[in-house]
Simulated assay, not measured.
Amino acid sequence: MTPNTVGHVTITRDRVFDALSLTGAIALLIVSVVGPPENLAYTGVGIAVQVMAVGPLVFRRLAPLAVIWFTAATAIGMSITELVAPGTIIDLAHDHGTLWIPQAVTPFAVCGAMSHYRNQTAVWIPTGVLFILGLRPWELTGARIAQSLILVIVPAVIGMSIAARDRTYKVLMESARADERAKLAAEMHDVVTHRVSLMVLQAGGLEMTARDEETRRAAEELRANGCQALEELREVVAILREQGGESTGKTAQAPVPELSTLVSESTSVGVPVELVEEGAAGQASAVVRRTAHRIVQEALTNVRKHAPGAKVRVHVTYGPSDTRVSVRNSPPIGPGLSLAGSGSGLDNLRERVSMIGGTLDAGPSSEGGFHVSATLTEPVS
């Protein structure tokens, strides 16, 4: 089962269950308050309370603990009112066994809180309040025990089962994503590495056999770029394997290129770049530093392609918990090499940054240029 399939099944089940819960509460409300006048156990005030208590049920997924506490508070209010002024909520002349809790909403509030709130221990407190008020220990009867178990305890157990099911689905989704990343890593290693290695070997052969200096220099640059591409590819494969539970440890051992090299390369082709680095680069892990290098590299490549003549400022701040990267360029002074790009480079960067738990933002700046900003979070050791 793929992550998309698992996620779709989960969302569909949640929506169906939410609809059934609301429908069930309304149906139980009708059963509780509608009937022959001689059998109606709730007074007008009691019916109003029952209807009012159902409303917050629409927030059972967004604020489950608040909904169940509201239900418990309503039950407390009903019980105090009946003890102080008997007959205000319940028409005891017709029914002496009616529960002094919001019957329609209680099972769904309890189930929703147990299934959607992380701390189930906290949910048991209002659940216990509802159970005790439903029992009315000072007037305990067998029928009341059965009703309280059905309306409070059984929904709590069902909610706990749903929460366990959701945790299982989450584990399945993470496992499926890890498997996909591991397969992608293997495919990249087998196909892309093979082709790039051939390119590096051919460039090396051309460098050895070329007769003129310009051709040898071009071949050497091509070979060096190919070797760098292989290093970056190995790091991406290592990250993917780590996500798939197949850590090789190569990421931390791979050499991390300096940002000053990228600045020098851009300056040599006519793109002036100002580099500002704050903090000690050694604070950042190898994965974070290499990702920062890749962000700056892609940003400078885009400037050369789409913003000729623009000035660029690269600002990197290293910290113990995260590294912030900002690349901003001024407006171009001439037409670019292409009118528009596919945007795949930035999309790939976002995916790469997200794999280490970071965020990336890119878009036009207020000065008329373009900016790429990222926050790279240090991996948890």
Rank of each mutant, 00 (worst) to 15 (best):
G204Q: 08
L149H: 13
S260E: 11
E378S: 11
P36N: 02
W100N: 02
V276N: 14
L62Q: 15
P308L: 07
G368S: 11
A85Y: 05
A85I: 09
Q50D: 04
D95I: 00
E220W: 00
S161A: 13
S330F: 05
R234Y: 00
T10C: 07
I239T: 15
V152D: 15
P308R: 05
M160Q: 14
R241Q: 15
V84I: 13
S366P: 07
E82I: 09
K183Q: 15
L275C: 12
D166T: 10
L151M: 15
E187G: 07
T375M: 08
P255L: 11
V157K: 04
R328P: 01
S148C: 04
Y169G: 12
R350G: 08
A284W: 03
L57G: 14
T215D: 14
T193E: 10
V191Q: 10
P272E: 11
S373I: 02
L83P: 00
S79Q: 06
S342A: 13
T81C: 12
V34Y: 09
L198V: 06
P255N: 11
R290P: 03
T248K: 00
Q50K: 04
V157H: 05
L151A: 15
E207W: 05
Y42W: 13
T98Q: 14
R118C: 11
L22H: 01
T88A: 13
D361C: 02
L29R: 01
E235Q: 06
R177T: 03
V171E: 09
T248Y: 00
N225C: 02
R328T: 02
K183D: 14
T121R: 09
G244N: 05
A185I: 12
P255C: 10
V110S: 13
T121Q: 00
N119F: 08
G363R: 06
Q147D: 11
P364D: 10
F370M: 08
I356H: 02
A310P: 02
H293M: 06
L92H: 14
V58K: 01
A292F: 06
M78E: 12
G357R: 04
